[in-house]
């Protein structure tokens, strides 16, 4: 229960800050995606179920507060949270580079996914503007954000398995 409350507080704060501070923090035409970085961090730390739930809640809150297309950010962040969580539970487990790799890949997939959904619902989807204009700046800013955000999230919600207190077991044979 404490974990859910802590996660909800982090997601709420991130959605508010994304709509006020971080949308204004831009490089080229790309702006920093604090919400995406927070979802990636939570998913890596606490697994796919919490990652997907946090992604859904974060997206819904963001779409509501900014009058966005309801469901669009939720869909993309749910998938982002789930996939990152699965990566964290399997291949990326205990890898130091996992947060950086995850945020880089997910930023690209998130933007391309948004482009695809917009194209499918008949809204303007400028591929060139995204790839040449927004994506490089957003990728760089998200990579700069991931380290401090990951550390803060780890302090707040801990890492999956930390609470067990069991030492790591390695098969040497």
């Amino acid at each position: 229960m404490r974990l859910v409350l802590k996660t909800a507080a982090i997601v709420f704060a991130a959605a508010i800050l994304q709509g006020s501070w971080f949308d204004a923090l831009s490089l080229g035409s790309g702006s920093a995606g604090l919400l995406l970085v927070v979802v990636v961090s939570l998913a890596l730390l606490r697994g796919s179920v919490l990652g997907a739930s946090a992604g859904f809640a974060a997206g819904l809150l963001f779409d509501i507060s900014t009058f966005g297309q309801l469901g669009l950010t939720s869909l993309l962040l749910t998938l982002a949270g789930f996939w990152t969580g699965r990566y964290g539970e399997t291949t990326g487990r205990d890898r130091a580079h996992a947060p950086f790799l995850s945020v880089a890949v997910i930023t690209v997939l998130y933007e391309l996914g948004g482009l695809l959904v917009r194209f499918l619902i008949g809204e303007p989807a400028p591929f060139g503007k995204l790839v040449l204009g927004a994506l490089p700046g957003e990728l760089l800013l998200n990579l700069l954000l991931i380290a401090p955000v990951y550390v803060l999230c780890r302090r707040a919600v801990g890492k999956h398995g930390d609470e067990l207190g069991a030492p790591e077991v390695r098969v040497l044979a």
Binding site: A52, G59, F67, L70, L79
Partner: peptide, 26 residues
């Protein structure tokens, strides 16, 4: 959650700007 997101997206996309979802969003 993905299905719920898709449902939200479909309903909000199809309804008018005075629809219930948009009012809730307001």
């Amino acid at each position: 959650l993905v299905l719920l997101s898709l449902a939200l997206l479909t309903v909000s996309f199809r309804e008018s700007s005075n629809g219930p979802m948009h009012r809730v969003q307001g």
